[in-house]
Design a binder for these strands. Structure first.
Lengths: 109, 109
DNA sequence: GATATTATATAGCTATTCTATATATAGAGA
DNA sequence: TCTCTATATATAGAATAGCTATATAATATC
């Protein structure tokens, strides 16, 4: 598996998942692993720094789970800015993936 | 345009183009720009180092244009190893792009 | 003669992701 | 009770790809 191709899809997919509903980091990782049949295995060392950057850039908003006792989860919510950036990223993905397929599918000369 | 998503596609597309026929660097850049309607604008600073790496890894073989006088072009030819790696990369691209689309297309909950 | 295009090359920078490590709770099994 | 695994988040440091900037030189165009 050429994981180099996965680069750049991390923030796209995080935002896409959070548009459905708020999720916490670990939940994002398990959800994407399930939905992609294991093609995407997000590591904690990739996921959490990426979430922190999205928060810093104002694309998501973080909120620790209400109850103070027990294990804490940090839920990430989509912001308006995040939705706008997601729309751009989806458009970019569409253009790029189509462009790649166009080159790959052209027959030999 | 979120160029981050382009990362990883460079070597995939170079190999795909060279499978058709041998080309020189500048020709690869103009060909991909045309075929993708400008979506991919490979910069010299990305393209040439990438070609050198592919050569170092034995995926392509470089050959300066025969005639010694005038402007020189370095033609890149596909190797057997390159063809095998290309096949793997195409398979990876297929899995990854399908996985991304699967997540993007799932409706909200 | 001046400018734009063709053609290749590399040093250094930036940004993303990965590896490794750390901390702590919860649950299952021996 | 003890141990192991899974859950849950965090960060430092390393690796690496692609970009910017710069350099060189031939050819074509005005």
């Amino acid at each position: 598996m050429d994981t180099e191709l996965i680069k750049g899809t991390l923030s796209l997919l995080i935002l896409s998942l959070l548009k459905r509903r708020a999720m916490y980091g670990y939940e994002l990782a398990t959800t994407v692993r399930q939905e992609t049949n294991g093609a995407f295995e997000w590591k904690a060392g990739s996921l959490y720094p990426s979430l922190h950057k999205l928060e810093k850039d104002g694309l998501v908003r973080a909120q620790w789970q209400g109850k103070p006792e027990g294990r804490q989860r940090k839920y990430y919510h989509m912001t308006q800015t995040g939705e706008a950036v997601l729309a751009e990223k989806i458009e970019s993905w569409s253009i790029i993936s189509q462009a790649v397929n166009q080159v790959l599918e052209k027959p030999n000369e």
